[in-house]
Amino acid sequence: MLTRPRTTHSVIHLATAIALVLIFAFLTFRAEAATAISKEEKIKAAMVFKITQSITWPQRISNLSVCLMGDENINLALKKMDGKLTEGRRISVTHKKTSAPLHRLCDMLYIPHASKLDLNAIMQRIGNYPLLTIGDSEQFLTQGGMIALIRTGSKVTITINRKAVDQANLKLGNALLGVARTIN
């Protein structure tokens, strides 16, 4: 009579322990996933968000579609913009394949350098459509990208490819131009 409840208790303890371990593992995993976003990535994501407030598209936009590519960590930071309001528009952040009709689906596109995507192919697909492209390397700009968020030493700098922006008929605001370096 005394042993049964004990066994039951042991089972309960064991189950509780396993559950706790699982919860702990889950929490740790979550925590890791959360902290895996570096400060640099957070800053870049915040810059992208601020840039959305400083762009005028030639067409009327009610929902701002920000498209992500590749499976880089920064996408996690960028996804946090999803649902935020910018200049009265709701931001939606979605992941797209390179083969998608980007110019119809996206108003902004973030292409991480590390993703090793075929940049030329993407750029050709976009053409001169009013789709703002943001990357994170000098090379991105020379291949026709519009805005690069480049880590320089301990800071993130913003460089604008003026020609590409103008060709796409996009207008940049003063808040952005005031802090960015412009190349032609």
């Binding site: 959360a34 400060k39 800053i43 915040a46 601020k50 840039i51 400083s54 800071k155 952005l176 802090v179």
Partner: peptide
Amino acid sequence: TADDDFFEYSLQELIALDIPDVTSVS
């Protein structure tokens, strides 16, 4: 805080932020 996303910072503030070494204290 750990989950501060800087979304409320202005561009001017963002370009001035120092990125600490990932493992060192922020």
